[in-house]
Amino acid sequence: GRAEVNEPNEFKSFGEFLYSIRFRPQDSRLLSFEDTLSPDELRGYEMAMARMSPEEREQSMGVGAEGGFAVPDQFMDTLLQVSPQDAIVRPRATVIPAGFPPDASITIPALNQTAAQNVYGGVTVNWIGEGATKPETDLELLYVKLTPHEVAGWIRTTDKLLRNWAAAGPLLETQLRGAMIGAEDTTFLTGTGVGQPTGIIGSAGSINVARAGAGAIVYADLLNMLLVTRPGFTYVWIGSPDIRGQLMGIVDPGAAGTLIWQMNAQEGMPGILMGKSIFFNERSPTLGVRGDLILVDLAQYLIKDGSGPFVGISSNVGTDFIENKTVVKVFKLVDGAPWLSAPIPQENAAATALTAYAVLEA
Rank of each mutant, 00 (worst) to 15 (best):
F188R: 09
E7C: 09
T36F: 01
V95L: 02
V251A: 14
R24E: 15
E347Y: 12
V71W: 00
A87H: 04
G254T: 11
Q175H: 12
P39F: 01
G249P: 00
R43S: 14
E16T: 08
Q85P: 02
R244W: 07
T198A: 10
G169P: 04
R156C: 08
P25T: 04
G249Y: 09
E7R: 15
I294K: 13
I106L: 11
F14C: 00
T174M: 11
A356W: 03
I155K: 05
L298K: 04
F33K: 00
R211N: 12
A152F: 07
M47A: 14
E56H: 06
R283C: 06
G199I: 03
Q246M: 07
S203G: 13
P91V: 07
Q113E: 07
G153F: 05
T36L: 03
G336A: 01
D73Y: 10
L259I: 00
Q113Y: 00
I200W: 00
S20T: 01
I260A: 10
D103F: 03
K325L: 12
I21V: 04
W165M: 06
P109W: 05
G178Y: 11
A349C: 08
A214R: 07
S307K: 09
G182W: 06
A342D: 13
F14N: 01
R211L: 05
G99M: 01
F331V: 03
T286A: 13
Q246D: 14
F100Y: 14
E56A: 03
Y45Q: 08
W127I: 15
R230G: 03
F17D: 01
V311A: 09
E361W: 01
V194S: 15
V151D: 11
T286Y: 09
N324H: 12
E150R: 15
A48C: 07
S314A: 12
L18T: 05
A104Q: 06
I108F: 02
I278G: 13
D138V: 14
A204C: 04
T124K: 10
V218E: 14
V89Q: 04
I207L: 13
M47N: 06
T158C: 05
R283H: 11
F310T: 02
T190Y: 02
R244C: 01
Y357N: 13
G306S: 11
A214S: 13
S53K: 02
N6I: 15
G191L: 05
G68N: 00
I128W: 08
Y219P: 08
V194P: 02
R2Q: 10
G245E: 01
K325H: 08
G257W: 03
E4D: 08
A204V: 03
A65F: 11
